[in-house]
Write a protein that binds this DNA or RNA. Structure first.
Lengths: 245, 245
DNA sequence: CGCGTCCTTGAACCGCGTCAAGCCAGGTGG
DNA sequence: CCACCTGGCTTGACGCGGTTCAAGGACGCG
């Protein structure tokens, strides 16, 4: 697919391009952008890949990963609709992280030259993008602190709430709208799958969650929140929300 | 001090304002900015303080901290000349982190209204600031991964190299150009002072460093780098450098 | 039906944080 | 000028949490 999705006709209200570009630039970007579709399990880009432009998620679910020794992965963040991917920059030429589709994912792609011109001609777009990065960085700083101070059980609780914040839950059965392997959940919580397992069964015994096959229902969100409240996360309620609302 | 330091006459080449504002805006900002001096031990701002504008470090040494339960601090980053402090934003009204002077520190302060106008009228300034945040965020993502995978000894090595990267070493005796308490080093490495101590004495026995009172001399930087190289930090060499050079 | 992959649980080891006690240095007051 | 005191530094011993290792179970697919 190429250029089949028009920005001017796009109904995505959160999109930063849609919101902060004037009509002329919306049309210009729309004409020249690409629209790609990735299947569950595809890499959108990998660590060390060259950067050619800016990816914006149109729909779907993405994990952002960084790989350590022995190919041990850490999921450093999650992305969905309206999130930029991989933090495009001009001085760093290659991605330091990888982006992986957890589900069928549609992305818009703006090549570097074009998006640079857009930034130069739409101050509000550049400003909004700066705000986005600035706020993500603030969150990350607080996150660095609490991840270093939480124990395994708290990290798992935090992970579940983070998943809920980004992908949401099904209102009917409270199930998370995403399916991850135990390994992936451990990569996100920052532990090993065995320990993750123990915490999950423990949570189930305490009736905080319910395991339904690969699905997880969050039956007591307040209970989970209380478990980690003492880490000075009163800011938690809006910590992981999309920052430009 | 107020308005005594003129941007137009400033010789600081790294300053983002100096580099990316036109002459007219340099003069305008210069007239209306404030210049503050903080002594060693002063807070520039604390967590939860209201945000009134943007701080830029003119000279000195600053630690950025986040506080957890029982007032346990984590140093989430360090800042020196030309670094913005606290990630000014319009939607978040209060700082999520605190900034603390480790040494006599001079800062320029631009109030929110003024800096907003500057951003709207100087696309290259906004763009450069966006790039700064974008790159800091990338570093932070990789950092989140390796901090979660390193053991105590590696974290201490990483901390020492980070200190060198930001504040540098004295070419004569290789001593770090900054003095921190054991507690602060532990807050930075993400451990307890006792463990930090053990690693430092261990490093000294291995002739990687030398303790000279409160000073620390890095006598074998390559050795320290090798200790953590297996964490896929080949990007380390420029990872913590000031990103806009 | 058989195989493979992931999930799950148990057991053992060990790294590191906690606690406690001694040490050293710098500051203060007699 | 020296004795005392206080706060940070240093080292040792202990115990717990979590990772690792190993084995059995469940599920899906050919």
């Amino acid at each position: 697919m190429n250029g089949t999705f028009s920005c001017t006709e796009c109904t995505l209200k959160q999109c930063i391009v849609k919101r902060f570009c004037n009509a002329k630039w919306q049309a210009l970007l729309s004409e020249n952008k690409n629209h790609f579709v990735y299947q569950k399990g595809d890499y959108i880009f990998r660590e060390q890949d060259r950067i050619f432009g800016l990816y914006m998620v149109y729909s779907g679910k993405v994990k952002i990963v960084s790989t350590g020794e022995n190919h041990k992965e850490k999921i450093v963040s999650l992305a969905t609709t309206a999130y930029p991917l991989g933090h495009w920059g001009t001085s760093v030429q290659t991605y330091l992280v990888g982006a992986f589709a957890l589900d069928e994912t549609h992305v818009c792609f703006f090549d570097s030259d074009m998006i640079y011109e857009a930034f130069m001609n739409n101050p509000k777009l550049t400003f909004a993008m700066m705000m986005f990065y600035s706020q993500e960085l603030q969150k990350m700083e607080v996150r660095e602190r609490y991840l270093s101070q939480m124990n395994a059980c708290e990290k798992v609780a935090e992970m579940l709430l983070y998943l809920k914040e980004i992908f949401g839950t099904n209102p009917e059965d409270q199930c998370l709208n995403v399916i991850l392997s135990r390994q992936e959940m451990a990569d996100l919580a920052g532990g090993c799958p065995e320990q993750l397992m123990r915490e999950l069964t423990d949570f189930e015994n305490k009736q905080l969650i319910e395991k339904k096959g690969k699905q997880i229902a969050l039956t007591n969100i307040e209970g989970l929140t209380e478990m980690i409240a003492h880490h000075n996360l009163d800011i938690y309620s809006n910590l992981w929300k999309y920052p430009l609302n």
